Each structure stands twice: as structure tokens, then as C-alpha cells.
Simulated scan of single mutants.
Amino acid sequence: MLYKLERNYHFMHKKRLILILILLSSFLASCGNRGIPAIKQELLDQKMSVLMLSSAGLTPPAKEAIGQALKSWRDANSIAYDWVQDLNALDENVVSKLKTKSYDYIYVVGNELFPSANETMALGLSASKWTLLQSQPFAGGSAGAVNEQAAVLQLDPQQMETLKNNAIQNLIFQNTVIEWVTQPDRPIPSVWAPSEEADHIVFLNNTQWFQQLTLQVHQHHATWVVFYNPVEEAQLQRAKNLGVSVLDYTGALTADLNWKQVLDNRLAMMKTHAWQKGVQTYNAQELKELKMK
């Protein structure tokens, strides 16, 4: 009797083991079929993509911030990207990318690239959302016309004018003798150079403008020369050689931007699909400092 019970016990135990092995085999086979879920094509098509175009004139900290931001966008947010850097203008390489790839967002970082970016946008090669990011105040005082389908992030023009105007007012308050250099179609504000001080103004359309400036500096014992019209660096240097302080009014400012914050805000915009065309200004967190050179 005992033998029979032991035999039945071993039989049931073996049957239970076989059943467990069958169930385990079925489970493993099922897992083998699934494995790591394959990414469906429609999900790949939905993956956000960015083309970053940056100027050769950017500072090393700005380039580093861009590189770190792009890696973070890819690793933490699955944003695919291409980065073409150290550009002086959007070239054939960029045009080729636009012809062969589709990007959701295109960022152009650096003032120098704006003219060629406008030309490239006009080709109509891409339905991408373009954003142009100003890196420094424009030396010519103006960004010029930008394609109406683009977003432009720039420094606050009113803030810049206020800072420059205050610098001039401080010179005048100190009774500084100033010689002004400009063009006839860009007159000096009368509050700075009244009509009775017309002999303190030199016009650049005069081929002898530098000789005239030299005469007036010596005649009036001037200590400052202010260029109110955009000029080349060589013209500024000639004036400095007269032994006076020189101010380039249109290119007088420099900006220190918080590029990490600027790019973090672009990421938030992409994630919330809040992109809008048109001109916008850097906010207080994105602009660290705006100052006279």
C-alpha cells in the first residue's frame, strides 16, 4: 500500500513538472516573439527633427551651449538633429540638406547669417519653421527685412536706443567737446548738436571728410568723435589716430546672452508646439547684460 502511494506521488510530481515546463516554454516562446518592441514607422515619422546653423562669429561659450543643448534634446527628448557650424553664410551644403531631408525646425544663430538665410528661405525648399537668433546688436543699427514666414529673436531695439542715448547725454552733461560724423540723410538730433554748432558736424559724403574732421578736432580742441552713421572699422581707426576718444553710435553695444536659457526656451516652445512667426525680443532671463563697448 505504501509503495503504491509513493508511486502515485512521484507520478503526480512528474506530471506537475511537465506541466510547469510546458507553461514556461510557452511563455519564453512568447517573449522571444515579442523581444524589444520594434519602433513603428509612423512613430519614426513623428520624431521631431532640427537643423541647427550657427555662425563662425559665435563665442566659444555660445558654441558649447548649442552643442550641449542639441545632445540633451536628442537624449532626453528624442529630437533628431543636424548641426552645421562655423558658417559665414548659408551655402550649398545647407541647400543640399534642405533638398534631401525634412526638418521640423531650423535655427539660424548669428547676425552674419541673416541675409543668406533670407535668400535660402525664398527658395521655398522646405516647409520647416525657421527661427533666426540674433547674437549681437547689428553694427549697422538694423536687422533689415526678414522673411515674413520666419520667427526672429532679437535684442530689444528700444532698450538699445535708450542705453546709447544715455551715453551721449552723459558726454554732453560733462560739457565734452564732440565732433559728429554722419551722412546728410541721417542728421544729428538737434538736442545734441544745435544749429549753432553746425561747424561741429562732418559729412561722410565729402571726399575730404577726414581732413575736415582733423581740422575741426584741432580747431575746437575736441576730445570725442561720434560716428552717428555706420562706418567701416578702418574709418574708425583713422579717427582714433587723431588722439581722441571715438564712439561708433550704431555699433556701440555688446550683448551677453544666456544661451542655455535661450535654447531651453526654444525646446519648451517645440514641445508645446508654440512656435509663432514674427519678431520677438529676448526676455530678462535670456539676456544677461547689454552694455557699451
Rank of each mutant, 00 (worst) to 15 (best):
residue 204 L to C: 10
residue 213 L to P: 04
residue 149 Q to T: 08
residue 150 A to F: 06
residue 184 P to M: 04
residue 196 E to D: 10
residue 232 E to D: 08
residue 140 G to V: 02
residue 193 A to T: 08
residue 220 H to Q: 15
residue 240 K to G: 09
residue 233 E to P: 09
residue 242 L to M: 02
residue 122 A to R: 12
residue 185 D to R: 11
residue 147 N to Q: 10
residue 215 L to M: 10
residue 137 P to Y: 00
residue 131 T to D: 06
residue 211 Q to A: 12
residue 134 Q to Y: 01
residue 164 K to T: 00
residue 125 L to H: 01
residue 155 L to T: 04
residue 226 V to C: 03
residue 212 Q to L: 15
residue 138 F to D: 05
residue 223 T to I: 04
residue 220 H to S: 10
residue 208 Q to V: 01
residue 172 I to K: 04
residue 229 N to I: 13
residue 228 Y to F: 14
residue 140 G to A: 02
residue 132 L to E: 00
residue 237 Q to Y: 05
residue 162 T to N: 13
residue 220 H to Y: 09
residue 143 A to K: 07
residue 195 S to K: 13
residue 194 P to G: 08
residue 222 A to R: 00
residue 205 N to H: 09
residue 193 A to E: 07
residue 174 Q to I: 01
residue 210 F to T: 00
residue 132 L to W: 00
residue 201 I to C: 09
residue 152 V to F: 08
residue 171 L to P: 03
residue 240 K to M: 13
residue 215 L to T: 13
residue 124 G to M: 02
residue 138 F to N: 06
residue 228 Y to E: 02
residue 232 E to P: 06
residue 196 E to P: 00
residue 196 E to N: 08
residue 231 V to C: 02
residue 127 A to E: 10
residue 128 S to G: 08
residue 117 A to D: 03
residue 236 L to D: 09
residue 132 L to S: 00
residue 194 P to I: 02
residue 121 M to R: 06
residue 205 N to M: 07
residue 207 T to P: 02
residue 223 T to E: 15
residue 198 A to F: 06
residue 148 E to G: 04
residue 140 G to W: 05
residue 184 P to K: 05
residue 170 N to K: 15
residue 166 N to R: 14
residue 171 L to W: 01
residue 193 A to Y: 06
residue 229 N to D: 15
residue 228 Y to N: 01
residue 122 A to V: 03
residue 159 Q to P: 00
residue 183 Q to R: 14
residue 120 T to L: 10
residue 119 E to A: 11
residue 118 N to Q: 07
residue 161 E to N: 11
residue 205 N to S: 14
residue 156 D to N: 15
